[in-house]
Lab assay of single mutants.
Amino acid sequence: TKVFYNGTYVEFNNPEKAKKYAEKVAKKVGGTFTEKNGQFHVE
């Protein structure tokens, strides 16, 4: 499961961990995250 952010991504074996990371990054940058095709995108 990949989490895309700012033109790069971090890959996780565990979708649950990926979601938590996406939430954390989104919170940090004051943005939101969306799930597309089983991957997370932070905006």
Results as ranks from 00 to 15, higher is better:
residue 26 A to G: 03
residue 8 T to P: 00
residue 25 V to G: 00
residue 25 V to L: 15
residue 16 E to D: 12
residue 2 K to M: 07
residue 40 F to M: 06
residue 27 K to C: 14
residue 9 Y to E: 07
residue 35 E to P: 03
residue 26 A to V: 05
residue 35 E to L: 05
residue 42 V to G: 01
residue 4 F to W: 15
residue 6 N to L: 10
residue 15 P to A: 12
residue 27 K to N: 10
residue 25 V to N: 02
residue 4 F to E: 04
residue 34 T to V: 14
residue 6 N to S: 07
residue 37 N to Q: 08
residue 33 F to E: 02
residue 6 N to C: 15
residue 29 V to A: 07
residue 7 G to H: 07
residue 38 G to P: 00
residue 2 K to E: 02
residue 4 F to C: 12
residue 9 Y to H: 07
residue 41 H to V: 13
residue 40 F to I: 09
residue 38 G to H: 04
residue 3 V to G: 01
residue 9 Y to S: 08
residue 9 Y to D: 04
residue 2 K to G: 08
residue 8 T to E: 10
residue 12 F to Y: 04
residue 4 F to A: 03
residue 39 Q to E: 13
residue 37 N to Y: 07
residue 32 T to Q: 09
residue 12 F to D: 01
residue 27 K to A: 12
residue 29 V to I: 14
residue 5 Y to R: 00
residue 31 G to K: 04
residue 5 Y to N: 03
residue 19 K to Q: 09
residue 22 A to V: 03
residue 37 N to A: 07
residue 38 G to K: 05
residue 30 G to Y: 05
residue 34 T to E: 09
residue 37 N to W: 06
residue 32 T to R: 11
residue 34 T to L: 11
residue 29 V to W: 08
residue 35 E to M: 06
residue 20 K to Q: 14
residue 42 V to L: 04
residue 7 G to Q: 05
residue 12 F to L: 04
residue 18 A to V: 01
residue 35 E to G: 00
residue 20 K to V: 10
residue 3 V to Q: 01
residue 19 K to F: 09
residue 12 F to T: 01
residue 41 H to L: 11
residue 13 N to Q: 13
residue 26 A to Y: 00
residue 29 V to Q: 07
residue 23 E to Y: 05
residue 32 T to A: 08
residue 23 E to L: 06
residue 21 Y to A: 05
residue 31 G to Y: 02
residue 35 E to K: 06
residue 11 E to C: 15
residue 34 T to R: 10
residue 30 G to Q: 07
residue 7 G to W: 05
residue 16 E to H: 09
residue 20 K to L: 12
residue 22 A to T: 02
residue 11 E to H: 08
residue 28 K to S: 13
residue 11 E to Y: 09
residue 22 A to W: 03
residue 41 H to C: 14
residue 25 V to A: 06
residue 43 E to W: 13
residue 19 K to H: 07
residue 1 T to Y: 15
residue 29 V to S: 08
residue 27 K to H: 10
residue 18 A to C: 08
residue 13 N to W: 10
residue 13 N to L: 12
residue 26 A to H: 01
residue 42 V to F: 04
residue 41 H to E: 07
residue 15 P to H: 14
residue 6 N to A: 09
residue 20 K to R: 13
residue 17 K to M: 14
residue 5 Y to D: 03
residue 34 T to A: 08
residue 6 N to K: 11
residue 30 G to M: 07
residue 33 F to A: 10
residue 37 N to L: 09
residue 4 F to D: 03
residue 3 V to K: 01
residue 26 A to P: 01
residue 27 K to Q: 12
residue 43 E to R: 10
residue 33 F to L: 14
residue 8 T to N: 11
residue 4 F to T: 03
residue 10 V to C: 15
residue 15 P to Y: 15
residue 18 A to L: 01
residue 17 K to R: 11
residue 41 H to I: 14
residue 22 A to C: 01
residue 21 Y to E: 05
residue 16 E to C: 14
residue 21 Y to L: 05
residue 19 K to D: 03
residue 18 A to W: 00
residue 2 K to H: 05
residue 13 N to K: 13
residue 30 G to E: 06
residue 14 N to A: 07
residue 43 E to S: 13
residue 27 K to T: 09
residue 16 E to N: 09
residue 18 A to M: 00
residue 15 P to F: 15
residue 43 E to L: 13
residue 1 T to H: 13
residue 26 A to R: 02
residue 1 T to L: 07
residue 43 E to A: 10
residue 29 V to L: 12
residue 30 G to P: 00
residue 19 K to L: 11
residue 31 G to P: 02
residue 30 G to K: 09
residue 16 E to M: 10
residue 39 Q to F: 08
residue 4 F to S: 04
residue 14 N to D: 15
residue 14 N to E: 10
residue 32 T to I: 12
residue 31 G to F: 03
residue 29 V to M: 11
residue 15 P to Q: 11
residue 11 E to R: 07
residue 31 G to T: 07
residue 11 E to I: 12
residue 8 T to F: 14
residue 25 V to Q: 08
residue 22 A to G: 03
residue 33 F to W: 14
residue 4 F to I: 07
residue 35 E to Q: 07
residue 36 K to P: 01
residue 42 V to C: 04
residue 21 Y to H: 10
residue 27 K to S: 10
residue 37 N to R: 06
residue 29 V to R: 05
residue 17 K to N: 13
residue 5 Y to E: 04
residue 26 A to T: 04
residue 2 K to L: 09
residue 32 T to S: 11
residue 42 V to R: 00
residue 15 P to N: 09
residue 27 K to L: 12
residue 38 G to V: 01
residue 39 Q to C: 13
residue 36 K to L: 12
residue 6 N to E: 11
residue 42 V to E: 00
residue 25 V to P: 00
residue 30 G to T: 04
residue 13 N to Y: 10
residue 30 G to N: 11
residue 9 Y to W: 13
residue 5 Y to Q: 03
residue 25 V to H: 06
residue 2 K to P: 04
residue 21 Y to I: 05
residue 23 E to P: 00
residue 36 K to V: 14
residue 8 T to A: 12
residue 3 V to Y: 00
residue 32 T to P: 02
